[in-house]
Amino acid sequence: MAQAASVVSRLARTAGRQAASTVRGVLRSRLADSYPQETVDEIFAFALRKQTGVSLKYMLDFGANPIQHQMILSAQFLHRELPVRLARRVAELENLPYGLSSKPHVLKVRDWYIESFLDLRKFPPVRNAQDELKFTELLQMIYSRHTNVVPLMAKGVAELRHELASEVGLNELPEIHQFLDGFYMSRIGIRFLIGQHIELHAEPMENHIGMIYTKCSPWKVSQDAIDDARSVCQRKYGSAPEVEIYGDPTFVFAYVPSHIHSMVFELVKNSLRAVNDLFEEQGKESPAIRLVVAEGAEEITIKVSDEGGGIPRSDVPRIFTYLYSTAASPLPFVDDEGSDGPTVLAGYGYGLPLSRLYARYFGGDLQVISMDGYGTDAYLHLNRLGNMQEPLP
């Protein structure tokens, strides 16, 4: 969706193409039940402002020498930008269809966003190094406050799914999936901007600029993700198929390692489960999964191939929708505390759509091609140029 589109028009479409004035009234009346009118007016005013996107290359260039003046400029940018992004999400959370806005877990997430918005608005302008240090402390508090947003939202949507199960499948509700894509993409951006600023205050590490590792080896990160995924599989099944990895271990580029790890972990985990389930049922030895890291001029591609039986063709369009899962039953939520990558919500169908959003955040993508009856190939594309601006919702 075009960034220039107004929040009002987007909300109107999401709520069933109501007139913008109606959306305004709904927003004000709902929020006014819990917050002063001046707070509601301020949130709505900020929700109409334009967001400012950044690129990975910009973050690299800006953070290469984090002198005091640059840290102040970074804080000033976040002081202006974050309230706009938070206000837009509050506006959307207030106007979701099918009663999703009134779910207790969704209301809690909304209130976290409002609290952070108010904290930022109350903080005075950042003018010097002392102000910047205090502002960074506020950012750390906000970062911590929003740690469990993904599992809480998932619980709220799962509740809606349960209520509508007898009427319509959640996969048939494109408004919900469109909202979740935009909401989670925005969250990725907010957490990356905050996390990057905080990390620039940490003890300097060689070849690191905040969260970005300038000599990140996708081969080595993939190997770590493979080891972790096989360990999980081993604990659950008592065994794990082999994973063969191909590529150049010495190739490096600038990227966020935790993002690659989480995305590859999700893809390999899915393949391990598919292969193990199929061949355990047949009583045969499991074939190895293949992971290839290919270096292109503009992108790095990581391909994960398995012989786990594939996905029925009718299900392929649904694998990137939320709450579609091939797992037998949902497992407990695993909170993403301390993680800068996709949250693992096994059995809730969030792994693939969240991984695709993380890939797209820096200009990449995730594609899945399946041969029903044989296996699946997943292609994770990572932009190596770092020149793509955030795809702001």
Rank of each mutant, 00 (worst) to 15 (best):
A2Y: 08
A5D: 13
V7F: 06
S9F: 05
G16H: 08
T22W: 09
V23S: 08
G25C: 08
R28H: 13
S34F: 11
P36R: 07
T39K: 00
T39C: 06
E42F: 02
E42V: 03
F46T: 06
K50R: 15
G63M: 05
N65W: 07
P66A: 06
I67W: 09
M71G: 09
M71E: 11
S74Y: 12
L78T: 01
E81Y: 12
L82D: 00
L82W: 03
R88D: 00
A91H: 06
E92L: 15
N95W: 02
P97I: 08
Y98D: 12
L100Y: 05
S101N: 04
S101Q: 06
H105Y: 11
V106D: 01
V109Y: 05
R110S: 09
R110V: 02
D111N: 15
Y113P: 05
F117M: 08
L118M: 14
D119F: 07
L120M: 11
R121V: 05
F123C: 00
P124V: 09
V126A: 01
V126T: 03
R127L: 13
A129Y: 10
Q130K: 12
E137W: 10
I142Y: 03
S144E: 14
N148L: 11
P151L: 04
A154H: 02
G156N: 06
A158H: 11
E159R: 08
R161K: 15
H162F: 10
H162V: 11
S166T: 14
V168Q: 12
V168I: 15
G169I: 00
G169L: 09
L170Y: 09
N171L: 15
L180W: 08
M185P: 01
I188F: 06
I188P: 02
G189M: 12
G189L: 10
G195R: 09
E203L: 14
P204L: 10
G210N: 02
T214W: 08
P218H: 06
Q223E: 15
I226A: 08
D227S: 14
R230K: 15
Q234D: 13
K236M: 10
Y237M: 10
F251V: 03
V256E: 10
I260T: 12
H261V: 00
M263K: 00
V264M: 05
F265V: 00
S271V: 05
D277R: 15
I289E: 01
R290F: 00
L291W: 01
E295T: 14
K303V: 14
E307V: 06
G309Y: 05
G309V: 06
I311D: 02
I311Q: 00
P317L: 02
R318N: 14
I319R: 05
L323W: 02
L323Q: 04
T326D: 11
S329Q: 13
S329K: 14
F333G: 01
D336Y: 07
D340E: 13
L345K: 07
P353V: 10
R356T: 08
R356I: 02
A359H: 07
Y361P: 00
Y361M: 09
F362D: 11
S370H: 03
S370C: 10
G375A: 11
D377W: 07
Y379C: 04
H381E: 02
L382W: 02
N387C: 03
N387F: 02
N387G: 04
Q389P: 13
E390I: 10
P391A: 06
P391Y: 03
